[in-house]
Amino acid sequence: MAKPKIATTSLAGCFGCHMSLLDIDERILELVELVEFDKSPVDDIKNFTGRCAIGLVEGGCCNEHNVDVLREFRRHCDILISVGDCATMGGIPALRNTVPLRECLDEAFVNGPSVHNPDGKYPDDPEIPLILDKVYPAHEVVKIDYFLPGCPPTADTLWEALVALLNDKPVELPYQLVKYD
């Protein structure tokens, strides 16, 4: 029987959650015994090769590309997990949610202290995805099955949750493993 597949992605996040996944240290050898990694920055597979058992989503959606990727994950994964505070509630990127979009763009591309932009225009290459009006938590864009909050969630949190899911057990994490900081 083929090993179940796992896909991961980092949307509007900092890759800290992925770092935390790598922090499971030697257990990563156990993990690759249990699963096969599909689309993920871990193995640099860019496109889904097939249906995945589990998708790990780091980060919320701050631009239209994030939305596309997240929707793709939802279509390809049986179980989709929001990993970390950014996916769960927007996180640090969502700090901009109380600031008007124009102000954000002006600060980033026009007025910021380190900006050199003589014509004062926003970057407008059509390849640059458009920014959303605010940062959306993943579950406001697609249905999410599990949440592993934390900034980042600890390696143990990720490990315990994955092991439970791969063994068809309920995800019941001990008190110490569910934290928002």
Binding site: E64, V67, R71, R74, R75, L80, L101, L130, I131, L132, D133, K134, Y136, H139, E140, V141, V142, K143
Partner: peptide
């Protein structure tokens, strides 16, 4: 497909457009 119908991408990018 498990997408949230309440999320309106068109509306979300309108301001940036």
């Amino acid at each position: 497909e498990g997408l949230k119908r309440s999320f309106d991408l068109q509306r979300a990018v309108a301001e940036a457009e």
